[in-house]
C-alpha cells in the first residue's frame, strides 16, 4: 500500500531522513516509533506529497506522492500532530466542510457526518463550536475528519500526544477496531512505545532519520539485541558454605552445556543466566538437580524497556 524507496530529505546540511526503505502492506497497522526530532513527521509529509523529498520515491496505492499528490490525498486520511479546527464553526460544520472539499455532495455528506460523529462519540456535541473542544475531543473529531473520505490509508502523526491515559486507550482501540473492521491500512508515528505497542501489527524504529529496525515487537528485540534476548535471575542457596562454591562451579558448567545459554554469572547468591528464549524451567530443574535451594526465580526479556532505555530516553530533543 505504501512503498518507500531510498527516501531522503535534507534541510541545509542536516539530513532529516536518510535513505529510508519501507513497505507497508494493505490492512497493516504500522507504528513508526522514534524519539522527537527523528524525522517522523517529515517522512509522513513526504508520503502525503506535502514536502518534496531530496531523493527517493514514495508510492501510495500505486501513485507517486510527489508527482500525483491529489490522487494520493484522495485515498489517504491524515491526522496531523496538534490538529486544528475552525473555532467558530461547529463540529458538524467543520466536518461538512472537509466532506465537501472531498467532492462529497451535501446530502450524502450530511448522513456520513452524523454517522461518523456517532462513531467517535461526539454526536451530542455536534452543534458546539469546535473552539470549545478539549484536546481529546479535538483528536476524536480529527479522526472523524480523516474518515470522511473513506480512506484506504490512515496516517496519524503523534495521535496520543496530550491525551490522558483513558482517552488514549479509547482512541487507540477505536483505530484498531477500524483497521480490523474496514481493512484500512494505518500508519502512525509516536514516541511512546509502551502506549502503542499493543495495537501495532508491526513497528519500525526510526532514529536520526534512519530506520534501524522493523518488525513485530518480539522480532524487534532479536534484531536489536541478537541472542541475548532474555535473562533468568535465580536465588540459589546451599546449607554447607564450604561446598557452596564448588556447587556453583558445577552448576555453571551444566548450564553452559546447553547451547541456548550464552552466559552465566553469579552475583553473591543470585544467579544470572543469559539465554535465547525462555529457559526458566531448564534453569530451575538444573538447580534442583544439583540439590541446591532455589529461593526465587525471575525472568526478564530484552524487550521494550531495554529498547526504550537505549534509544528513546537518551536522544530526547524537541522537534521544532
Amino acid at each position: 500500500m505504501i512503498e518507500i524507496l531510498g527516501l531522503s530529505k535534507q534541510y541545509g546540511s542536516q539530513k532529516v531522513v536518510n535513505n529510508l526503505n519501507l513497505n507497508i502492506e494493505r490492512g497493516e497497522v504500522f507504528g513508526l516509533l522514534g524519539p522527537n526530532g527523528a524525522g517522523k513527521s517529515t517522512t509522513i509529509r513526504m508520503i502525503l506529497g506535502m514536502t518534496e523529498p531530496s531523493s527517493g520515491t514514495v508510492k501510495v496505492n500505486g501513485f507517486l506522492s510527489n508527482m500525483n499528490p491529489i490522487k494520493v490525498k484522495e485515498c489517504v486520511g491524515y491526522l496531523p500532530e496538534d490538529v486544528g479546527f475552525y473555532d467558530k464553526m461547529t463540529a458538524f460544520e467543520n466536518l461538512m466542510y472537509t466532506a465537501q472539499l472531498n467532492r462529497i455532495s451535501k446530502a450524502t455528506a450530511k448522513d456520513k457526518v452524523e454517522q461518523l460523529l456517532k462513531l467517535v462519540g461526539l454526536h451530542n456535541e455536534r452543534n458546539k463550536k469546535a473552539g470549545t473542544f478539549s484536546k481529546g475531543m479535538k483528536q476524536r473529531l480529527g479522526l472523524a475528519d480523516v474518515l470522511i473520505k473513506d480512506p484506504k490509508v490512515i496516517i496519524l502523526d503523534e495521535p496520543t500526544l496530550g491525551l490522558d491515559p483513558k482517552g488514549m486507550k479509547e482512541f487507540l482501540d477505536l483505530i484498531k477496531r477500524l483497521s480490523e473492521e474496514k481493512g484500512v491500512t494505518v500508519l502512525f508515528s509516536s514516541h511512546h512505545l509502551h502506549q502503542v505497542q499493543h495495537i501495532c501489527s508491526r513497528v519500525g524504529l526510526f532514529i536520526n532519520g534512519q530506520l534501524i529496525a522493523s518488525g513485530d515487537v518480539d522480532s524487534l528485540s532479536t534484531q536489536l539485541f541478537g541472542d541475548q534476548s532474555a535473562r533468568v535471575f535465580a536465588g540459589v542457596r546451599y546449607d554447607n558454605n564450604n561446598e557452596y562454591s564448588n556447587k556453583k562451579e558445577e552448576l555453571k558448567r551444566q548450564l553452559l552445556s546447553n547451547p541456548e545459554v550464552s552466559g552465566v554469572q553469579f552475583n553473591d547468591e543470585e544467579l544470572i543466566v543469559e539465554c535465547k528464549n525462555n529457559m526458566s524451567s531448564y534453569v530451575a530443574k538444573t538447580i534442583v538437580n544439583q540439590h541446591l535451594d532455589l529461593t526465587y526465580l525471575n525472568k526478564k526479556e530484552y524487550g521494550l524497556d531495554e529498547i526504550y532505555d537505549k534509544y528513546f530516553e537518551g536522544g530526547d530533543h524537541h522537534e521544532s
Binding site: L48, M50, K71, D82, G84, Y86, D87, N102, G142, D145
Partner: peptide, 14 residues
C-alpha cells in the same frame, strides 16, 4: 496558528 493548514492541505485539492 490554528493548525488547520495541514488538515486542509491534506485534502485532495490543489
Amino acid at each position: 496558528s490554528r493548525g488547520t493548514i495541514s488538515r486542509i492541505l491534506s485534502q485532495p485539492i490543489p
